[in-house]
Amino acid sequence: MEENPMAGVLNDESDQEIEYDEDGNPIAPKKIKEIDPLPPIDHSTISYLTFEKNFYTVHEEIANLGPDQVEELREKLGVKVTGPLPPNPVSSFAHFGFDNQMLKAIRRSEYTQPTSIQAQAVPAALNGRDIIGIAKTGSGKTAAFIWPMLVHIMDQKELKPGDGPIGLILAPTRELSQQIYVEAKKFGKVYNIQV
């Protein structure tokens, strides 16, 4: 009652005339919800902890590729890339620089070599870059963002009680969320990460 003294008290809107549809069912009146905007945040007054976001070391084989060879590899993979200085695509899981635990988990998942989206997106994500990747269903998009995410998570300090999640994945549907959950759990257990 202290929080909302008017709870349960009839107000002036209660005298509203109720409208009915052609079947005789009452039509709910339109409610106009006014949402107060969030106050602006001055990030210059907040001291954020520094963190590393570049975990990609270009493999020697990939670094030695010439521009023509990079374009040839992209054509072979069927990859189109835009943006300032995108990283070169890779052709092997060894080029990612993952530790042995991750590579074993990838092999257990029956991946033989990176898919097209993985070959281009994983180096960019490990580099801390923003990515928009478009590929067909079943092309390995989920793993392409989960693997770098796990590398980033493992570099963060240990969570204290009450801390929120380190990584967050948003998906538009429950079905897709469940598919992502299964993949994230499979690779997250390599590092004992709770999903």
Rank of each mutant, 00 (worst) to 15 (best):
P5V: 01
P5K: 01
A7Y: 06
V9H: 15
D12R: 14
E13C: 09
S14Q: 05
D15E: 13
Q16N: 08
Q16K: 11
Q16G: 03
E17A: 08
D21G: 07
E22N: 13
P26Q: 08
P26L: 05
A28N: 04
P29V: 02
I32Q: 06
K33M: 11
E34M: 13
P37Y: 15
I41N: 04
H43K: 14
T45F: 00
L49W: 12
L49C: 14
T50I: 08
F51W: 09
K53Q: 12
Y56D: 09
T57L: 11
T57D: 14
V58D: 05
H59W: 04
I62G: 11
I62C: 10
L65T: 01
P67N: 07
P67Q: 06
L73N: 00
L73I: 06
L73P: 04
R74N: 08
K76A: 11
G78F: 07
K80W: 11
K80H: 11
V81D: 06
N88M: 00
S91H: 04
A94C: 00
A94Q: 07
H95R: 03
H95I: 10
F96G: 03
L103Y: 01
R108V: 15
R108E: 08
E110N: 09
Q118A: 04
A119L: 06
A119F: 05
A119E: 07
A119Y: 11
A124L: 06
L126M: 08
G128E: 10
I132K: 02
I134G: 13
K136E: 10
T137F: 00
G138P: 05
K141T: 10
T142E: 03
A144P: 15
P148D: 06
I153L: 07
Q156I: 01
K160M: 08
G164F: 10
I166R: 14
G167I: 00
G167W: 01
L168V: 13
L170T: 14
L170Q: 03
P172I: 00
T173D: 10
T173W: 13
R174Y: 10
L176F: 12
S177W: 00
Q179G: 06
I180K: 01
E183M: 06
A184P: 14
G188R: 04
Q194L: 02
V195D: 11
